[in-house]
């Protein structure tokens, strides 16, 4: 597993992202963007659709309704339009309505909310287990069953310039690109275990709909299943001290074949492949569920 880090990365990157590989997706912020990053998992698509189809219409509706009422009273009941104020202070009917209707709206929201959290929080049968460890200020990744582990830190401005000089298909991005991206297979359930070696960090990839606190002494779990090959970025999302803004997350989702190549290049062993070290677990692959 020892290797010259940079040359391996370069070789790996060339193997994975060589000419012709369809690297359509990029999970990154867009300049001036006002909406979510492009979703890359079913969970994130559900988050977006819950937000866009249910929450947004409701909250925009409520806000516009309140604004319209305010404008109406401003126009209709100002001093000039209505010199003598009326004195009523009760109206049972409207009071009942504005209690019941919000309750109904909230029940509707909850009916959509609960299925979503069930989907997010129920870890499906997973092909791969990924252990993520936050530390000040970088991320350590490990596929315990594959015998792969490495550390991923922020890519310096010089390295970004160097990488982009070669006019790569996916440019390196400031504050988002890392020295060594996490590589995951497309279309596989990945069970993520998140913990920390020191203060609390949070492992977040917006386009996956994943954000999980990394806490010392506790292992949190979440999962994802990436739709299509691409590069997906995230950033530490729990204040962890001076370099909190400088411990990015870069995930490269690749085909299963490319993933297997990468694992081997990292000195690990794919399950089912002739065992190099210990721990090839053939059943894991057989049990691969469709989610």
């Amino acid at each position: 597993m020892k290797r010259g880090a940079l040359s391996t990365i370069a070789a790996g990157a060339a193997a994975i992202f060589g000419a012709g590989s369809a690297l359509a997706a990029e999970g990154a912020p867009t300049p001036g963007g006002v909406h979510f990053q492009e979703p890359a998992t079913a969970v994130m698509r559900d988050i977006v659709s819950f937000h866009d189809n249910w929450l947004m219409p409701i909250i925009v509706g409520v806000s516009v309704f309140v604004l319209a009422l305010l404008l109406w009273v401003i126009v209709r009941f100002n001093r000039r339009a209505n010199p003598t104020p009326r004195k009523f202070t009760h109206n049972l009917l409207v009071e009942v309505i504005w209690t019941i209707v919000p309750v109904i709206i909230l029940v509707v929201i909850a009916s959509q909310s609960f299925p979503l959290i069930i989907k997010e929080e129920t870890i499906p049968q997973s092909e791969y287990t990924l252990k993520v460890t936050g530390r000040s200020w970088s991320w350590a990744y490990e596929y315990p069953d594959l015998g792969v582990s490495f550390t991923s830190s922020i890519l310096s401005d010089e390295d970004i310039a160097a990488r982009n000089a070669g006019d790569p298909e996916v440019p390196a991005r400031r504050l988002l690109s890392t020295t060594e991206p996490l590589v995951v297979p497309v279309g596989a359930n990945v069970h993520v275990l998140v913990t920390s070696e020191d203060v609390i960090h949070a492992w977040a990839v917006p386009s996956f709909g994943v954000k999980e606190d990394a806490i010392m002494g506790r292992v949190n779990e979440t999962w994802f299943n990436v739709d299509s090959p691409g590069v997906y970025y995230g950033q530490c999302s729990e204040l962890c001290g001076k370099d909190h803004a400088f411990m990015p997350i870069e995930v490269r989702a690749v085909s299963r074949a490319e993933f297997a190549e990468w694992v081997v290049a990292q000195g690990g062993t794919m399950p089912g492949a002739p065992a190099v070290g210990a721990g090839g677990e053939p059943e894991a692959a057989a049990a691969a569920p469709t989610r």
């Binding site: 819950f50 929450l55 909250i59 409520v62 806000s63 929201i109 979503l116 997010e120 917006p206």
Partner: peptide, 30 residues
């Protein structure tokens, strides 16, 4: 006071959005 009523409404409805932990996964700490 009128400004308050409207702007507090806007803050309140985004609170309801955040209350849904499924979406808060995206919004938390942003």
């Amino acid at each position: 006071a009128i400004g308050f009523i409207f702007l507090f409404t806007v803050g309140g409805v985004t609170g309801v959005v955040l209350a849904n932990s499924g979406v808060d996964t995206s919004f938390h700490d942003t």
